[in-house]
Design a protein around this nucleic acid. Structure first.
Lengths: 233, 233
DNA sequence: TGTATACGCATTGTATACAATGACGGATGT
DNA sequence: ACATCCGTCATTGTATACAATGCGTATACA
């Protein structure tokens, strides 16, 4: 414990640990609905599936539990969190509150160069019924929103928003395959950045609000049309 | 895995697990500054201190890491997160955004009975230089704000806010002993609830904003007066 | 038939042994 | 004096063995 200022030598190396590997793989499988909402999971089963022992699996599960993708019940196992209408409403409401605030702050602080870099992340689409493209689209979309939030300069806010969006990806996966919204969503990000670059803050906030609520309603509508097992609790 | 609907049988029993025990004890010691910001911790050391093996300690540490109280550096150990001015600003800003929104929603939804129960949590003070009373005050204060947020009906928001306030308790601990603000803070909660009960939503939001910013500035002022080791990164 | 009770079993919770990592310091060469 | 290399050691990362829990079921009993 003489190594006092090794504190600075933080996460530099990118060599992945088993726990991290399992975390990423499991999260991916949860988001892509490979593990379906309500399904039961066991540490042993996951360990075999992802090729490790129970210990890294356990760490990954606890993390995903706190992010709201899993639920652990003591001495029983883990259950994939169900998707409820209430959770969808709550999540989008929280997201709106966080992103609205972040956007206002970003408008005050961001430089032209930063906005330019953000614009580079804006062009993102998907193709209907192409499962692979869904995943990539969602990743880019998350990137865009996280980077936008980062321009607020508030790193706590960014961390919270990142976790939230991560937990929300499932919603989109559920919705994307039930209706083709690619055209409808085309250019949303560009529109937002353009307003920011033009310095029209209020319009940008209004635009963001419109987009987020539209996004929510698309999912709700898709879910209402197709019949998906959604215990509304 | 035939036990499909045992999913419902969630956390009922209150029997504590070692990991939980360590988590609570360690969090308490972090909040009360028994472990000082910047200090180095090892799993083995913590295991001996809290009377368990490394495994539960590990789980507690990962949890506290995600809550922003610890930082883990691989193959090296854990470090108590330092308190920076930026983090104080960021935290209060995020808290203001979350609580403002929650308050607005609560004003729309809360029944008189709920507001009455909230009022019961409002009367809370501390006595200067009484370390014990600080802890209890902070717990009651957290309770009040979390319950207030709960009236918004948004459980995701509540979860995020709870973690955030938990991580912020240290700030108050740093500040409380550097100045006697008991008188200044007396009745703040009552004032807020009264405005809510009177249906004066806008005034309540303004009041909350005033209180939160005052709280932040008290801490900043106290920190500026006493000299506390605050690496501003 | 209904009800209380005890047992089995799947699963998590915990401890411990061992492997991997990488920072520090001394040895070595120039 | 100074840089470089290499071994050492503290610490985390991982696997495995064992304990604890509590649900489901069979069983005993009225």
């Amino acid at each position: 414990m003489t190594d006092v200022n090794a504190e600075a030598t933080a996460a530099r190396g990118t060599r992945r640990t088993m726990a991290e590997e399992v975390y990423l793989a499991l999260k991916r499988d949860l988001i892509t609905l490979r593990h379906k909402p309500g399904a039961a999971l066991t540490e042993q089963g996951l360990a075999e599936r992802y090729g490790s022992s129970r210990v890294p699996v356990r760490e990954a599960c606890r993390r995903l539990q706190q992010e709201g993708l899993l639920k652990a019940v003591p001495y029983k196992g883990y259950f994939v969190d169900r998707v409820s209408l209430k959770d969808i409403y709550d999540s989008f409401e929280l997201r709106l509150a966080l992103e609205s605030h972040a956007l206002s702050r970003a408008a005050e602080r961001a430089t032209d160069a930063e906005l330019g870099r953000l614009a580079g992340l804006a062009g993102t689409e998907y193709t209907f019924h192409d499962w692979e493209s869904y995943t990539e689209f969602l990743e880019r979309n998350e990137d865009f929103h996280v980077q936008l939030a980062a321009l607020s300069g508030n790193s706590r806010l960014v961390a919270v928003l990142r976790d939230l969006i991560g937990a929300m990806q499932r919603f989109f996966m559920l919705g994307l395959d039930l209706g083709d919204f690619a055209a409808e969503m085309r250019g949303e990000h560009e529109e937002l950045v353009a307003l920011l670059q033009a310095g029209q803050v209020d319009a940008a906030v209004a635009c963001l609000r419109r987009q987020i609520l539209a996004s929510r309603d698309r999912i709700l509508k898709a879910l209402a049309s197709g019949r998906i097992d959604l215990p509304l609790e």
